[in-house]
Amino acid sequence: MTPHQVLAVAALGGFAAIVSLLVFAFLAVAVYAAVARLFEIREARREQHRDLKTCRAIHALGTFDRQGPK
């Protein structure tokens, strides 16, 4: 191989390495964002479930009006 060919192969290898590292970093950030979003959704559902349980407990207590308990 001539020195120009060696240089071209080395440049292509370096370019491929940089591109693959960028793709890997992008995928890592995307996976992290997806997992973080899943945890946020999970926590929101837990909070909603707690609120629903509280509302049901308050509703089960019954209410009083002027004539007495319902």
Rank of each mutant, 00 (worst) to 15 (best):
F24G: 08
Q48V: 03
A44N: 11
A33L: 10
A36V: 05
D51Q: 14
L38N: 14
R37L: 12
R56K: 08
H59K: 14
A57K: 07
M1H: 10
P3N: 14
G62Y: 00
H59G: 02
F15G: 07
A33Y: 02
A8N: 10
L22F: 15
M1L: 09
Q67E: 04
A25V: 13
A30V: 08
V31P: 04
R50E: 12
L22R: 09
R66C: 01
G13V: 05
R45Q: 14
H59S: 09
E47D: 10
P69F: 04
L27D: 07
L61D: 08
R42F: 09
K70A: 02
G62K: 01
R56M: 05
I41T: 12
Q48A: 14
G13F: 11
E43V: 07
V35I: 08
A33E: 13
L22D: 02
A10T: 07
P69D: 00
F15H: 05
I41N: 13
A36K: 12
L52E: 12
I41Q: 13
E40K: 14
G62C: 02
F39Y: 09
L38Q: 15
L7A: 15
S20H: 06
A25L: 14
R66N: 05
A34K: 11
R50I: 06
Q5P: 02
G68P: 03
A57P: 01
E40V: 10
F39S: 13
A25N: 09
H49A: 15
A30N: 11
T54K: 11
A30M: 11
D51L: 14
L12F: 08
K70W: 01
F39R: 15
V9K: 12
A36Y: 06
F15I: 06
V6W: 03
G13A: 08
G62V: 01
Q48E: 15
L61I: 03
L61F: 00
G62R: 01
V35E: 07
V23D: 03
L22V: 08
Q48P: 00
Q67N: 07
L22P: 00
D65P: 02
F39L: 13
T2K: 11
I41V: 14
A8V: 04
T63E: 04
D51H: 07
L12Y: 05
F15M: 08
G62P: 04
T2N: 15
L38E: 13
A44F: 01
G68D: 02
Q67S: 09
L21W: 05
F24Q: 08
L7N: 10
R50D: 09
A57D: 12
R42D: 12
V31W: 12
A10S: 11
G13Y: 07
Q48W: 03
Q48S: 11
A34T: 09
I58R: 06
L27I: 13
A57I: 00
Y32G: 12
A57C: 02
H59D: 12
L61V: 03
L38M: 14
R66G: 04
G13P: 01
D65V: 01
R42I: 05
A8D: 13
T63M: 01
H49S: 13
D51S: 10
R66F: 00
K53W: 01
V23T: 05
M1I: 10
D51Y: 04
A57G: 05
A17R: 06
A10I: 05
H59T: 06
R66L: 03
T63Y: 07
Q48L: 10
L52Q: 12
T63N: 05
E47S: 13
